[in-house]
Simulated scan of single mutants.
Amino acid sequence: MAKRIVSMLVAIVLLQAPLVHANSSIELKVDEVVGKDMAARHTPGASVAVIKDGKVVLEKSYGLASIELNVPATNATLYRLASTTKEFTGVAIMTLVEQGSISLDDSVRKYLPDLPASWAPVTIRHCLSHTSGLPDNVVDDMVNVLPLAGTRADLMALLAQKPVKAPGTSMVYNQTEYMLLGDIIARVSGMPYERYVDERLLKPLGITGLQWGDTWTLVPGRASLYTALQPTADHSKLQLDAKGQPVFSTNGIHPFGSKIATDWLNPAAGLNGSIQAMATWENALWTGKVIKPESLALMAKPYVMRDGKTGDFGLALMQENQQGHVRVSTGGGAAVWITTIPDQHLTVIVLTNLQASQPYKLVSAILDVYTRPTHSGAAEATR
């Protein structure tokens, strides 16, 4: 069965026509890179965009949005963005900073006074950078994410009983922080968090291909979600090995059964998006049409902790140096990845419907197509 699905994916992978035409040799190289990656990982569907010098030079979809229904992925297909949503929350916070409504070093209790008194040392900056020391509002063992409580009131009562570590001393990925950021955005703006993102960030750009909703929500046009990891025998969750690491499936991919239905997780993981919408968003973000370039640079700058060490995150974004260039990235659900090389004005977006598809590797391979000197056609693709 797995071999038949892979053969079907390879056969369909070149059938989707790009809306934006790149140089043919570069486009064919990207097709080759994507096709090999999808076949190797059994990825059902993927959508890819490349932005160069403020222009979308490639926007293309491959494979299937639904294996069961044999529905091809298109450039309008919606994918779960999962934690990629945090980028939007971070940008929304920066719009409030730019207009002088909040400061990054304000305590979260300044805007949310009902929070436990022990949370007072935690700032907005700590929440953005995952250095708050707050207890997490989910149980997260790397692959299984479950809310700690069924209602917001029960959740807050439970979190209030848990210890708080000294803020700014360690970096631990955390969903509570982004729940609070969403609450702050709502309190300061006077409108629900989701509406603020829609009205302040998306509507001015004409973006309609982003929708809110978790896996319990009926979202028309959204791709089915699958996993490359091995479920337990009773299919109640995904397996972990003795070291707590996820176990990759040895018998093909599986439908992904994660069912998180908590509206307080929207600021952390609530968005679904198409490649068309994401290309428009990223292009606008990196050309200064959403927030100031210096605000975006601050979001990408790695947070420096009290002991002088830098963490993996800046303010919602991640930054690393590769081959002498800074790369700024975000991703979510182990299925979506976006990387920008600012000094080369180059962004690659990969959306997939397979958890554990390692999309960062596919992004890196596509970046290589556009940056390697031997690929002279890359220059032509952006003219």
Rank of each mutant, 00 (worst) to 15 (best):
R306L: 14
L201I: 06
P293V: 06
P72E: 06
Y79S: 02
D214Y: 14
L81M: 14
D105W: 03
R187I: 03
V350T: 03
Q239K: 15
G190P: 04
V369G: 01
L202V: 11
E98H: 05
R41A: 05
M38T: 06
E68M: 06
I338P: 00
T176M: 10
A261T: 09
E177P: 00
L205M: 11
D154H: 11
P192R: 12
R222S: 05
A242R: 14
G270L: 06
I102T: 06
L28V: 07
T232I: 09
E294T: 14
K237S: 15
A279M: 11
Y303F: 13
G90H: 01
T287C: 08
A228I: 04
A92C: 03
L15P: 00
I341T: 13
H126G: 02
V48F: 09
L155E: 06
S295F: 13
L265M: 10
F313H: 01
A261W: 11
V219N: 08
V10W: 01
L315T: 00
K86R: 15
D198H: 15
P167E: 06
A300K: 02
N272G: 08
M278W: 12
K243M: 10
K55N: 13
I291N: 01
I5E: 06
D214W: 15
Y79W: 11
K36M: 07
A39P: 03
T208Q: 06
R41G: 00
M8R: 15
V290L: 10
S376V: 15
L180T: 00
G308A: 12
Q239H: 07
E194K: 13
P255Q: 07
G209W: 01
G314A: 11
V56H: 12
S274D: 05
Y193P: 00
A65N: 04
A22F: 08
G252A: 08
G324I: 12
L225K: 09
D106R: 03
A40P: 02
V369D: 02
E282I: 11
D241V: 05
K237T: 14
R187Y: 02
G54Q: 09
A268V: 03
S107P: 06
P72V: 15
Q16I: 13
D136P: 07
S295T: 10
Y226V: 04
L238A: 10
T352F: 04
A335N: 04
V97K: 05
V71G: 00
V48Q: 02
A92R: 00
S132M: 05
I275S: 05
A335L: 08
N251T: 13
D183Q: 14
D368A: 12
L159R: 10
A22W: 12
L218G: 08
P116Q: 06
L96H: 03
P293G: 10
N266D: 11
Q99A: 08
L19E: 11
N75S: 09
T84H: 09
A166R: 15
P147M: 05
P113K: 12
I102P: 01
P147Q: 06
S83C: 08
T347A: 10
T169N: 08
S7P: 01
S25A: 12
L148I: 11
P72K: 11
H375W: 15
R187K: 15
A268Q: 02
R187C: 05
A46R: 02
S224N: 10
I253K: 05
I185D: 00
H345E: 06
G308L: 13
H126K: 03
A334H: 13
H235M: 12
G213K: 14
